[in-house]
Design a protein around this nucleic acid. Structure first.
Ligand code: MN
Ligand code: MN
Ligand code: MN
Ligand code: MN
Lengths: 239, 239
DNA sequence: TCAGTTTATTAGTGTAAGCTAACACGTCTT
DNA sequence: AAGACGTGTTAGCTTACACTAATAAACTGA
């Protein structure tokens, strides 16, 4: 064992962990994550991504097809899901136990996810009762690396008359999250689509059971992921 | 505002934060922190310290007297105390709210202290009721940067017959901490010094109020910081 | 089909922070 | 006063990860 032998499994750096997470999100629908998409999400310049892609594929965490993009290997996917579990448990812990709002947790979790130990995450998960969903409705991967795959549709695509449960909110933008919470649009809420205007117009909904109406513009309606509710289904309680 | 202007107040790096903390501890009795002491505590090579010392004194966080050592500036001391507050609140939060043992918290806090926001620390401090001491009895600096200065003496130096309150335990070594907890030697405990053997021999004590005897070797007795108890003083409850 | 545009990669630079080997300073002992 | 020894510093190298400028590949639309 000389000073020349490189450490076989060095711990992942914060940067590597963040790259794996965004590659996971960008390629989770099956395709490739492109250099510029990764650069955009991480707010770094494209050549920085090219450099990191080189290193990640050298260490076997991703597969790189030049000029096409990257995908996670099995190992890369495991690490990505481990980070996503940490992130979402942290978000939930901060909201449930320390009074954070759902629009403030993301930034905090984004840093803490790299510093906590696996043991601390599991203690938090226990304190929270082994939760399934984070404050934004996103599923929490298990410690074994499994994640729930759900078939959801954006409110923007739901047909008029559909009875829906809001399940996930697809943004971390604090201003949007505050507005949505204000409108009562949080995961678990039941609603009926009552109208949609043409030419990418707004969707009008009625909240259940109150019947309160809401008008949701196209952009926000794209972020509200819903599932169709069978009659008499009450859904999960809102958080 | 050109690309050439350096950021005036870049956030401190994890390394810088750790250097400031150990310099604080090494120079808190008034003297200089030496290169090799810093290197020893951080487990880095002496030239690494020389390099960092250059940068820290360039940025005004420390004063460097070549070949003699370093001391914190007012700004450096502020930052060090801010980190110590974070560290100690984290340690207490992990023990009180997540069931950590007092011998496991240090390593976790050592990483988290660099990742938490000031806001999260204050939320934790509130959840804990604005605590004054960490699980090892060390005083927690206030958010304003004040720290309690106490006159404590090591059990090893206490005269036979003295009635003492154990206030701080001066180690983070997990094995030692486990043993001490096992012996009932945690901050807040009252005891009487019943005997001391010569030639750096062990100290024998009687725990109050039970009267249970304990024999404490020289090395451990050096780590147990105590204050003399006026008659009828009950001390703080043990944690 | 090919010229123009968009996207990706390469080349080269910088900063933070570690290391070893070589050298310099200060002190203690004779 | 002079070495000798321990401690501190300098020189030079390495890795991770950013950046800009220059170049190469891929796509697109006339
Ligand atoms: Mn992150
Ligand atoms: Mn979330
Ligand atoms: Mn630390
Ligand atoms: Mn402590």
């Amino acid at each position: 064992m000389s000073a020349l032998t490189r450490d076989a499994n060095p711990p992942l750096t914060k940067s590597v962990e963040d790259y794996l997470k965004v590659i996971y999100h960008l390629s989770s629908q099956g395709g490739f994550a492109t250099t510029s998409d990764i650069a955009g999400m991480l707010e770094v310049a494209p050549p920085s991504v090219s450099g990191m892609v080189k290193r990640l594929s050298d260490t076997g965490l991703i597969e790189h097809v030049p000029y096409r993009g990257v995908q996670l290997t099995a190992q890369g996917r495991r690490e990505a899901l481990r980070m996503i579990r940490r992130h979402r448990i942290l978000e939930l812990f901060l909201t449930q136990q320390l009074g954070y709002d759902w629009d403030g947790v993301h930034a905090e979790a984004e840093r803490l996810e790299h510093a906590v130990s696996d043991g601390l995450i599991e203690r938090m998960a226990n304190a929270l009762g082994q939760p399934q969903y984070d404050p934004h409705g996103d599923p929490i991967p298990t410690a074994a690396g499994e994640i729930e795959e759900t078939e959801l549709m954006p409110l923007a695509d739901a047909p008029v008359g559909a009875k829906l449960e809001l399940r996930q909110v697809g943004t971390q933008d604090a201003a949007r999250l505050r507005y949505l919470a204000d409108q009562g649009l949080t995961p678990g809420v039941l609603l009926v689509v009552s109208d949609r205007q043409p030419f990418n117009g707004p969707t009008t909904i009625a909240l259940a059971p109150s019947g309160d109406p809401r008008i949701v513009g196209r952009d926000l309606a794209q972020l509200l992921w819903c599932r169709e509710v069978p009659v008499e289904d009450r859904g999960r309680p809102a958080t």
